[in-house]
Design a protein around this nucleic acid. Sequence first.
DNA 1: TAACAAAACTAACGCTTGTTAGTTAGAATT
DNA 2: AATTCTAACTAACAAGCGTTAGTTTTGTTA
Lengths: 189, 189
Amino acid sequence: MKTLSRKDEIISVASHLFNEKGYKAVSMRDIAQAMDIKASSLYNHISGKQEILSEIILKVAEEFTFGMKKVVSENSSAIEKVEKVIEMHIDITVNYSEALAALNNDWMHLDNTDLIAFVKMREDYEENFRSIIKQGIKAGEIKQYHPEVILFSILSTLRTLYLWYQKRGKLDVNILKKDMVSVLIKGIL
Amino acid sequence: MKTLSRKDEIISVASHLFNEKGYKAVSMRDIAQAMDIKASSLYNHISGKQEILSEIILKVAEEFTFGMKKVVSENSSAIEKVEKVIEMHIDITVNYSEALAALNNDWMHLDNTDLIAFVKMREDYEENFRSIIKQGIKAGEIKQYHPEVILFSILSTLRTLYLWYQKRGKLDVNILKKDMVSVLIKGIL
DNA sequence: TAACAAAACTAACGCTTGTTAGTTAGAATT
DNA sequence: AATTCTAACTAACAAGCGTTAGTTTTGTTA
């Protein structure tokens, strides 16, 4: 196991604090204090507060983008693809649960190019998911509900999962996958 | 139609700004500027920034508490109660969509007694919902999934609804209710 | 052990924050 | 007409913010 670089430590500590109070409510002095150093020392490792935020958010956003790309390229039914997306979400949630707080609540504090990049990734992601659902409806695999309502319903649950995962003490991943797939899929078959 | 008091105007403007950027990212000067007055003038109507936040959040939280109390006291099946809860959520979302942003994302910035009161209301609310679901499972109306997973899945969707309602341009309430009830209920029958 | 790099420190900067004090202009009430 | 109320204003405060410059400590390598 590789040891964390000092920069990675900062990002990890910051993720934890952002998760609790949000980006704007956490100061550089807060982050430094949690590491038992002074705020100015942080600047030996990172260029500023913005860099911390964008590293946290964009890293996870890229995971989602990559995962979705993989699912879309697969040769399988729409329902199977939806299952894969659900499982991907759960895997990312388990590995990055604190970063997901920043991604969900603080993305609007990204600046300029990072903000644009993030919004684009998010829109593309949703559009890909929407396509899978539409395909499934057309193929008769999925009920004829408004695709937007199905998309919204599933995505809301997946995007909020990090909160419940943190609260209900780190549930078993495989059980979680099985239950979530059941509950989210059975309703649309 | 009663005209808004100056205090209510402040709360309305603040809700809008909190909805866009979050409580900590909005300054008293921002709120004042949006009303074309100076920040210090706000203090003729409210005691401070904290009061604005707690008025926004607690008012909606009490709506939820009241609505849930009403549903619980009804003499109807578990599934009917779940339907009522969904419809109540949609009604509140339509009437307070901007306040819901603060309730969901900024509740942790409430202080002392307000924070305690809010967390209690939230826990009670979830516990009531959980009971309805457990009843429904015991009565054979609802599938034998883990109650926590059903609770989480439905509640996530309802709690995030305000975001979609804002984005997809104010959908028709009755259509929304019908679709949401279908999608959320059919999966657990 | 001398040299070098990594990572901490102190001190301070200009700016923004929530809030207070004291004042003023206009409207409503007596 | 005199008084009170409402709601705005200017000016300032102490504290906190992100960040920079320059210096010192720490640990590794030659």
